[in-house]
Amino acid sequence: MIARLLEGVPRRGLVALAALLLVLLVFPAFASGYLLAVGFLILYFAFVGQAWNIMMGFAGQLSLGHSLYVGLGAYAAAALYVHFGVSPWIGLGASIATAVLAGAVIGFLAFRFGVAGVYFAILTIAFSEFARIGFDHFTWVQGSSGFFLPVTNYAANDLWNLRGSPTMFYYLMLGMTAGAFVLCHALLRSRMGYYWLAIRESQEAAQALGVNVFRYKMYAVMISAAMTSLAGIVFAFYYNNLFPEQIFHISRSIELILGPIIGGIGTLVGPLVGALLLTGLAEGMREAMLQLGIDVPGVKQVFYGVCLLLVVMFLPNGVWPPLAKAFGFERRSTDRGER
């Protein structure tokens, strides 16, 4: 199994990954509270980016409504915890179930009725907006006034109930991101992964070759939704407050897909690189603004937008593919069909 996973991966790539993991593992020992929060955010976006990438990067289905799965996952686990004292490790069953169900409904409706491309993307927006307004009026979780988790002093880390210090959340997120990386790598190497790539490149050709296009697109949506909902749980227990206006908002959906697009769609490292670049850029800019004493809201975002614009214009495949080439991290076998 492990041998199969490692097959074709260049040695220097493995060494680089191990080094990166090591750096991330010791990072909290040296980081200030602020840097730790930034590190958490980077890992968070790397994780959700990876999850989104399964749908778009692997199976070629553009979802612009992934905040739906984040929100459903967050609300399901948080509500069970607050109302019934259920541990999020058990509540994640409900989170996954809700998100997978939502993904399955969207996927079923879209793929059965031939809703594709731009139309599919807008259908996903419609569902997440629908959920946003719906949760605004969902009194069991306090509607638009926000749903709060009880906060106490973190004397000890309680991993079972996800109550604890930022360091605990950092390591949790690190574990999830590493897990997602390995999982996506394994998925890409699986039969299903090859089917996805085939569907991405040409749905008609894949169908003609006997791939059950409908089924594998459904799997992509459901796996992506399940993973994304896990990120929602961590989000809920890390920030301790949930507002439909924030968590389901379309800008959240866009935020989480910027990473993989900037990093390189369909690549495994892309979501990591993208999250690192974007979060680093945003936080670095916040710092620079502070130093320069510029306190005009919006300046940071304008700069952010311009950077985005430049990347999209000049690096159409994202930042990672040219970097991978330069460092010799490309796979040895080129007939794998992976980008």
Binding site: L62, L258, G305, V312
Partner: peptide
């Protein structure tokens, strides 16, 4: 901006216009 993107994939065009939107909304804010 957009003419060079005519033959690019949908997600690429989408990103371009998201970036334009981001700049526009925040310039207006300023």
């Amino acid at each position: 901006l957009i003419n060079p993107f005519i033959n690019r994939p949908e997600h690429s065009q989408f990103m371009l216009l998201v970036a334009v939107a981001l700049v526009l909304v925040n310039v207006q804010l300023i």
